[in-house]
Simulated assay, not measured.
Amino acid sequence: MTTLVWSYQDEYAAERVDILDAVDSVFSSGQLILGESVSRFEKEFAAFHGAEHCVGVDNGTNAVKLGLEALGIGEGDEVITVSNTAAPTVVAIVGTGATAKFVDVDPATYLMDTSQLAAAVTDRTRCILPVHLYGQSVPMEPVLKVARAYGLEVLEDCAQAHGARQHGRAVGTAGGAAAFSFYPTKVLGAYGDGGAVLTGRAQVDKNLRRLRYYGMEERYYVDALPGHNSRLDEVQAEILRRRLRRLDGYIAARRAVAARYQEALSDTSLVLPAIEPGNDHVYYLYVVRHPRRDTIIERLRDYDIHLNVSYPWPVHTMAGFAHTEAAKLSLPVTERLAGEIFSLPMYPSLATERQDRVIESLRAVLATVDAG
């Protein structure tokens, strides 16, 4: 029996000719850094979202970090976000010199509980950073309402939600800026690291272009600090340009996988994903919930099925943040979820027969677990 884990190999096999042509086109162009491929991808990615500007950067973490800096967030500021997220979200906040302040998440969708935002604002708060988690959007109107009331910036973390929409509006177009990751497993993934920031504001776009290139507006002359070496690679940009044309297809395939899970598992004891009203979910991950999560995962290994947990440790409980005020927090929903949620295999090339094996094995395990 073959262990069922995600690999890019199937997708690479299907797209190999185009991917290799993308690489060759860049190597043949004579432009390896900030050339035509980056410029074209920025225009095309912005157009896909109906955004004014896109700036390609080297990875999703720096997309968040540079996005914050471009909005003027820095030393001594507070950024309100969630602890139920990938650690890089918070690492990026801390990297600007700001402090992450956490609110809890909604127990049904696992997204930011926007009802807690107003109470979390202090005189140091400068930004709200909603994380569009697992493939769907945080309710943005309550976020924007609080931001307007207190004069705060909004940076959307869209690393897991390429192509998702809320009430018809593309994620990443509601706030002052939005950060994307193109890590290979993402809904739109590169063949290495990559990231981008969208914005509708010309000054933020200008700030981002300076920030990613040492603080320079012209070559060899640093206009202002901070500055970074955070450029999107030309090869990855060309690959992303071509894969962007297939993004709608990737999303359709993910939704088909999710629909099969929904149909096959709706009568089990698993809590299946809940969709926020108005959201078009793109299913970066298919996250389910069960109070005996660890037992289920362990027993599935007997079937040679190895599942992932996203995320087993809330950020505020990690040793790396033990010295911060966040370590003293109690976030009951987030902390409970960390012991119950896990992800089922989810990728566009997941064959029906492989998914059926997951479903059948999972149902068999649940029958024994639920029986005590």
Results as ranks from 00 to 15, higher is better:
284 Y>V: 02
157 D>R: 05
70 A>M: 08
167 H>L: 09
161 A>I: 01
282 V>Q: 03
5 V>F: 05
3 T>N: 12
20 L>R: 13
278 G>C: 09
318 M>F: 04
75 E>P: 05
281 H>E: 14
282 V>G: 04
23 V>Q: 14
81 T>P: 12
196 A>T: 00
307 L>I: 08
283 Y>H: 15
359 I>T: 03
57 V>L: 09
163 G>D: 01
244 L>R: 04
16 R>A: 15
67 G>L: 03
334 T>L: 11
273 P>Y: 02
116 Q>W: 02
131 V>L: 04
24 D>V: 13
224 A>I: 00
147 A>G: 07
280 D>M: 12
98 A>W: 03
285 L>Q: 15
40 R>L: 13
83 S>G: 12
162 H>E: 07
168 G>C: 05
254 R>L: 04
194 G>F: 04
84 N>K: 05
169 R>M: 10
270 L>H: 00
245 R>H: 12
114 T>Q: 06
200 G>A: 13
339 G>D: 14
157 D>T: 08
169 R>Q: 15
372 G>Q: 00
240 L>R: 01
17 V>C: 12
247 L>T: 02
41 F>H: 03
150 Y>W: 08
297 I>H: 01
295 T>Y: 00
125 T>Y: 07
17 V>P: 13
58 D>I: 11
314 P>Y: 06
38 V>R: 03
131 V>A: 02
342 F>V: 01
34 L>D: 15
190 A>C: 11
134 Y>I: 01
249 G>C: 08
342 F>P: 08
314 P>A: 06
102 F>R: 07
170 A>S: 15
68 L>S: 10
186 K>Y: 07
340 E>H: 00
237 A>V: 07
46 A>T: 02
154 V>M: 05
120 A>V: 06
145 K>C: 11
340 E>V: 00
274 A>H: 09
311 Y>E: 14
161 A>Q: 02
348 P>K: 08
329 L>E: 12
202 A>G: 10
230 S>V: 06
24 D>A: 15
248 D>N: 10
116 Q>I: 03
99 T>I: 02
241 R>T: 09
161 A>M: 03
55 V>P: 11
36 E>M: 08
252 A>W: 00
127 C>E: 08
361 S>K: 02
153 E>M: 14
328 K>Q: 13
258 A>N: 02
91 V>L: 11
105 V>N: 10
114 T>R: 01
54 C>D: 06
3 T>R: 09
111 L>G: 08
245 R>T: 09
8 Y>F: 10
243 R>N: 05
4 L>F: 06
334 T>I: 07
265 L>S: 03
41 F>Y: 03
214 Y>Q: 03
54 C>G: 01
262 Q>S: 11
247 L>E: 08
274 A>Q: 11
236 Q>N: 12
117 L>V: 11
